[in-house]
Design a binder for these strands. Structure first.
Lengths: 234, 234
DNA sequence: CGAACATTTGACGGGCTTCAAAAGTCGTGG
DNA sequence: CCACGACTTTTGAAGCCCGTCAAATGTTCG
């Protein structure tokens, strides 16, 4: 009997345990989940799925990160979510004969664990307490979106940018004393897409924050938050 | 035994039945719900609750409409939801010892049916199938928010306004042949708050749409959509 | 009918977008 | 390890559109 995850990308024996939905399952149940998981890798820039694709799989981000996005009516990309290790996707659509209403793209080389719809629903039947966790998660997602809306309607661009940086630092930041070092998963263009701006405007305002000694850039992809208080106050 | 709803605003004997969550309950269960309902009326402009208030009640809009809103970091009101008859509110917070993270205000004279947390949870225990409906509803709310985000990041203001008008027309519009007549629940300022604009800009762009023969205003509060196709195409 | 309030219209300034070009960064192959 | 090219980011200049302020007009309700 297979009793560990055979995923090459998994550090943990039981990769499914990373996911909050499954974190409380007993070993026996976790094994059932793990044995049904398929593994997929995507290169940076690869598209996982597109709008209109049938949502018949549940995705767990095991390594890497990805963006979930759509397009505004005037054709500009709009990022809705940034996912990183142990986040998941596909959940809510699984209850309906649904399709995705957005796109997902790997922001770096990314390893996913996936479950198909039947297996996911089977696990749900055997562990009905997961339903409550899904509701928790839905509520969290609603809160995230409501906050994003508040951010998007903030006219002051430094404040808007600050909100994004604070969010990113929670998932991608490493505390080093009073400073936080972030390896940015997003390009300037991606940040612009998230904030409803252009890459030029993002670039100018990052310089602005740098001149105010609130952040410091190291190359293009590394950023140090020098003054988290000031970032929060913006 | 009380076998009808004693709410003066209720047309229906069983006002709770309006609500999708309760629509499938049998008469016996509906009666239990109805008997536990409290009735409250609010004048136009009255605040139902504020950010930070304990969310210990479930609200059903029985008559009228209300806005749910918050403020951006630079202090501008941001409307998140417009609720009308048979919509409900308070749901998700009921599972936690939660507080509201937004405000609600009556847009016109409004009658609500309310249930307290204990009664709501008791009904849930007796009718666990409601849990699935709550999840459906959460998913719908997520979709609504994702669409709002797309709207807010659309630079073309006529398009942005069109999205709002289309939404409003679904809940407040009356079809008259090819035209749709809408009694606007929102003032210009409210529309601006929803779209992240100023009342002046909304006013100017409504004139714009009027000059293009897409809509026609009758006074300030009535609007006729002359060309729904064109509105959709914007 | 009048007062309070909401909406429209006008003029101006500022900041974001756009277009363009320079500078910087990254990955690949020699 | 360096060099090259592709790509990303930064910087600059100009223009447009929304926000702001102000005033006039319109609407609602006592």
């Amino acid at each position: 009997m297979l009793n560990t995850c055979n995923c090459s990308a998994c550090n943990d024996k039981y990769c499914a345990k990373k996911v909050s939905l499954f974190s409380n399952l007993d070993t026996n149940q976790i094994l059932k989940v793990v044995n049904k998981i398929d593994h997929k890798s995507y290169k940076k820039g690869e598209i996982l799925f597109s709008e209109g694709d049938i949502a018949d799989r549940f995705f767990i981000v095991n390594k890497g990160s990805l963006k979930v996005y759509n397009y505004t009516k005037d054709g500009k990309e709009q990022i809705l979510y940034i996912l990183s290790e142990s986040d998941f996707l596909g959940d809510l659509n699984l209850f309906k004969e649904g399709v995705f209403d957005y796109y997902a793209m790997a922001l770096e080389d990314t390893a996913l664990c996936t479950l198909n719809k039947q297996d996911f629903n089977h696990i749900l039947l055997e562990n009905p307490e997961i339903n409550l966790k899904i509701l928790d998660y839905a509520y969290e997602r609603i809160t995230t979106l409501e906050k994003l809306i508040q951010t998007l309607n903030t006219k002051d661009i430094n404040t808007r940018l600050a909100n994004l940086l604070i969010n990113i630092s929670k998932n991608f930041g490493i505390k080093k004393g009073k400073e936080i070092e972030i390896t940015l998963p997003l390009s300037r263009e991606d940040m612009a897409s998230y904030l409803g701006l252009t890459r030029e405007t993002v670039s100018r305002h990052l310089s602005d924050l740098q001149n105010q000694n609130i952040i410091k850039m190291i190359g293009n992809k590394k950023m140090v938050v020098l003054d988290m208080n000031e970032l929060n106050n913006l």
